[in-house]
């Protein structure tokens, strides 16, 4: 049997199409008006010509691009290594915080203090304390490269955040799942590994990716320790030319770097929502 819409349905659909055409026109008009307003305000400002010259100079942009891009490669390396350790340490802390055995009380206590401390301390402060304090100790076997110490500081701070995200995921798994696993004879460890953690990670993938995006741009803060990353490279260029365009180049590169991941996070979140709705309807 083929579907023949009734004249009532056809009328309804025509009305819907008219309404959506109107919405599109209104959106276009208001976007144009807003754009016009911003252009008038910015170009009409007294210092506009000067700002344009020192922040949007094409010549200096082209000049700065190679060294800023080279710096960005360092950011990427730091990001990948830091993220690996952040996930590992975050997972261990999350597991430590969700244990219940009395023997492990000290472990729980240390984990709790750790997350409280490093979620409370500003990242910049951690960077300075680690980057400037540890070399001051003059311990031979500890490297005092700005890149290594900067990465350590990022790992210290982000592990605390990620641990809390993973812990929320673990606690979000229905306790009956744990019970069912234990009733089958699985040990505590087996239950965690095969039943709880796979579901926990599935639930918190979007917030974990969000933290990953955040780490991506905060990797630029290691420049304060003197590591020649994208921001530092831009700073060196600026110091030579007294033109700020290189900073904008670095900013544009960071945005380009994060956009694919943020889009991926959005897509994943939407897909998961849809899946959960489907599950709720059986």
């Amino acid at each position: 049997m083929t579907y023949q819409p009734s004249s009532l349905q056809l009328q309804r659909e025509a009305a819907k199409r008219r309404a959506s055409r109107r919405s599109t026109l209104i959106a276009l008009a208001s976007t144009f008006a807003a754009g016009l307003l911003v252009t008038i305000v910015v170009t009409g400002a007294q210092g506009y010509e000067k700002v344009k010259e020192s922040f949007f100079n094409w010549h200096y942009a082209k000049l700065a691009l190679p060294s800023v891009f080279h710096g960005l490669l360092l950011n990427l390396r730091v990001l990948i290594i830091a993220e690996f350790f952040v996930l590992l340490i975050g997972l261990l802390i999350a597991i430590a915080r969700t244990t219940t055995s009395p023997v492990l009380y000290p472990v729980r206590l240390i984990a709790t203090i750790y997350t409280d401390l490093f979620r409370g301390l500003p990242l910049l402060l951690v960077l300075l304390l680690v980057g400037l304090g540890i070399p001051g100790l003059r311990i031979n076997w500890i490297p005092n490269s700005a890149v290594v110490l900067g990465t350590v500081a990022l790992v210290l701070t982000y592990s605390a955040y990620v641990a809390e995200v993973i812990r929320a995921g673990i606690e979000g798994v229905n306790p009956t799942q744990r019970q069912a696993a234990r009733a089958l004879g699985l040990s505590q460890g087996q239950t965690l590994e095969h039943v709880v953690l796979p579901q926990a990670f599935r639930n918190v993938t979007p917030p974990l990716l969000n933290d990953f995006v955040s780490l991506q741009k905060d990797s630029g803060l290691i420049s304060v320790l003197g590591a020649v990353d994208a921001i530092r490279a831009a700073g060196i260029q600026t110091a030579q030319s007294f033109n700020f365009t290189p900073y904008l180049v670095a900013g544009a590169l960071f945005v380009l770097l994060t956009i694919p991941l943020t889009r991926f996070t959005d897509w994943l979140t939407r897909r998961q929502d849809a899946k959960q709705r489907a599950q709720g309807q059986w």
Binding site: T176, Q177, V195, Q199, Q279
Partner: peptide, 10 residues
């Protein structure tokens, strides 16, 4: 053991 709410691993 089998429970009222099935408790299969999703």
């Amino acid at each position: 053991s089998v429970f009222q709410a099935f408790n299969l691993f999703p």
